[in-house]
Every structure is written in structure tokens, then in C-alpha cells.
Amino acid sequence: MRKTLSLIAACGIVNSVNAADLTVYTYDSFVSEWGPGPQLEATFEAHCQCDIEFIAVDDGISILNRVRIEQDKTKADILLGLDDSLTEITRKEGLIQPHGIKLDTLKTDLNWHDPNFIPYDYGFFSFVYNSDKVSEPAVSLKELIDSDASVIYQDPRTSTPGQGLMLWVKAVYGNQAPAAWKQLATHTVTVTKGWWEAYSMFLEGDADYVLSYNTSPAYHVIIQDKPQYKAALFNEGHIAQIEVAAISKYSKNPDLAKQFLQFLISPEAQSVIPTTNWMLPVINNIELPAVFDTLIAPKRIGFTPKEIAKKRKKWLREWRSTAN
């Protein structure tokens, strides 16, 4: 053991000598071999003649928790992988600084004016179905909830899509949400801890609909050549999940950090993200595989990050007492 320790310590010393110019905290799948991380790193490093390092944690919320614990001792220059439901909390904790980047290249639909966060991709929470099995999909959330089609979704206490559905029901039903949850519960197969458990149960054929993203079908077409999986377009509109990045308040290299954020919304980076992170680009005129044109393009509804931060707890309580 002592040998192992000293070996690891030795590696550590070498590492700290080569400390990167820019450290980015992100989530695991972003930097996996098939994620956007490796390509973005190579392209940006060629631009800036610098060294960037990704540090990956479990998921978006873990990025926030980590910088919360570290406070001024954080290594992060950039937090990449939070989503719009977390922006308000992060701001309140005073962990980030303004980015000072012009946002006029972003898609106007996003309506993004946040002084601290830069969006780098987005998607709409959607119910995905197998068109070989479901020939006439529901056209509204109300129709789905009133139907008897089997549904799998994720727990809003433990997953982002689950929280998305909670907001969705709240946006569509308002005060009637408890009745809607009760109705949905009558044909809910199960509620899982995370996205993949739900999605793999759906692929095993355990439900007609699974809560996922409007971009999910693109994966099945591009990687698996399976066109039968489709996302249902609901006429009330959908809740968007916008993934964002920000500069840490304690960054030692804020100029380079700003350059990186600028790079994230450049056409170069934006054309990598859709087919590696399976989300939509935040700027227009990005050339994408044809299947992206066939994806549903829902109307966006929902709440501001401020409202979510304020009411999330109350809504969670409402969900857990009625969705039985």
C-alpha cells in the first residue's frame, strides 16, 4: 500500500507541475470518448495555444455542489453543464462572475439575456414512443394524461427530466396539477431514479411512452439506423432544458475563460455538440445530419429560473403526495 501511495503521490507531483491553464468542471458523459469533450478540447487548444483540463463529476448538480463545498479553494475556471433550473441557485451562492459576452448570435427563441451564464445546447423534454407500436401518438399532455397509455418517467427528486415533467405539468395544469398527477399515476408503469433506467425499460418494451428529449430519435437514426423511435409533439408546448456554462468567481484566468465561453457558442463548437451530446445547437445555420430536420420543434413554455428556485420544494411536495 505504501508503495502505491508513493507512486500516486509521485504522479501527483508531476501533475501539479503541469497544471492546466484552464480548468473546466463538467459532467462525465461530456468528456467521455463519445462525448463532445475530446473534440472541443483539441480544437480550442489549437486556437489558444494553451492547455485545458476537464474535471468530470457525476452530473450537473454535482458540479454545483462541488464548487459550493470548495468555495474560494476551487480549481475551476469554468463550470460547464449546469442547466437553467440551477442558474438562480448558483448565482445566489455567489460562485460565478459576469461573462461580458455579446449574446446576439444566439437563436432568438432562446430569449437568453443572462449576464452570468452562456447556453451551449438545449433540448425539449418530450415523451418518446415506438411508432411501430403506437400508431396515433397523443398530441397534447392532457391527452396523454387522460389516456391509458403506459408511461415511464423519472423521479423529480433525483433527476433532471423528472423535474422537467414536474414543471411541465405545473405549466399546463396550474392548480389542477394534483388531479393530473393522480390521473397519470393510474397508467404510470414506474418512476425511476435516473434517465437511463427509464429509457432502457422503455427499450425493453415496458411502456408506450418514456420521458426523454425531443432529440432522442436522432441518436436512434444516426447510430442505430432505427427510425421507429419518435418524440410526441404536444400542442400546449414543451419545457426546455438549456445547458449552460459560467466563469467561476475564483478563476485565475478569467480572460481565457471568457475566450472558452465565446468558443462554446462559435459555429465550430456548435457543430460538434449536437451529434455528441445529442442536444440542439444554440445558434442558427449549423449544418447537421438530415435527421435533425425531422425532429419536432415544440413551442417553449415554462417558468423563469427565479420562479423555479422559489417554488421547487412546494411542487415536489405536491408531486410526492399525489402521484401515487
Partner: peptide
């Protein structure tokens, strides 16, 4: 959680997970 079918199937461990991770 996976096989429980809904929020009625919640164990203490789920609540700990939620409290530590999502609500901090």
C-alpha cells in the same frame, strides 16, 4: 426506485440521496 412504481415506494436512502445531492 426502479421497480417500485412511484413515489409511494421511497426508502430513507432515497430521501438521503435527495437531501444531499439535489437539495444540498
Amino acid at each position: 426506485l426502479a421497480l417500485g412504481g412511484g413515489p409511494q415506494s421511497t426508502t430513507l436512502e432515497v430521501a438521503i440521496y435527495q437531501a444531499l445531492k439535489y437539495d444540498f
